[in-house]
């Protein structure tokens, strides 16, 4: 119940924001019959109407995970986010060892397995994609 109402509220805010953003699209020099903002307006309308429906007739509450699991997902999210940021600095191999080991550990492996899987995955993928297939993965200070 509550979750759907929140979704509806967020959706409604998004629809209003979207419609507003459509109104500030700069006027083009030559326009067609509906212009660059006509279709987005229709989309904002559909978004808004369906959001109102969620508020009025919400589905039963989904089963949210317990707080510690939510934190787990949040941490994984942060780690992935961090991975994207440090990739160009640390290079592919080091960053990947860290994130793979972290994910393996959090998915239920022991620390040693996690570390081994981190190193194995990272080196394995590096050999496969950079050395064999010739993709250019992110380079670190040591060149890999």
């Amino acid at each position: 119940m509550m979750s759907d109402r929140v979704l509806g509220g967020v959706g409604l805010a998004l629809a209003v924001f979207y419609a507003w953003a459509a109104t500030i699209i700069p006027e083009p020099f030559s326009s067609d019959a509906i212009g660059p903002d006509g279709f987005p307006m229709i989309i904002a309308l559909v978004l808004g109407l369906s959001s109102i429906y969620f508020v009025v007739k919400p589905d039963p509450e989904p089963k949210w995970p317990a707080l510690n699991r939510l934190a787990e997902i949040g941490c994984a999210l942060l780690v992935m986010f961090g991975y994207a940021q440090v990739l160009p600095i640390l290079g592919f191999v080091f960053s990947t060892v860290i994130i793979t080991a972290y994910l393996t550990w959090r998915l239920g492996a022991g620390p040693l397995t996690a570390l081994l899987n981190g190193v194995g995955t990272s080196v394995g993928l590096f050999v496969l994609f950079e050395l064999i297939f010739g993709l250019s993965l992110a380079d670190g200070p040591l060149g890999f």
């Binding site: 990739l87 793979t100 994910l103 998915l107 492996a109 899987n117 981190g118 993928l125 994609f129 993709l135």
Partner: peptide, 19 residues
Amino acid sequence: PTHILMPVVAMIAFIGIYS
């Protein structure tokens, strides 16, 4: 096991988009 597999899948996803 999943804990070996899923990280590899995630990494391949990252490699693909980065490439």
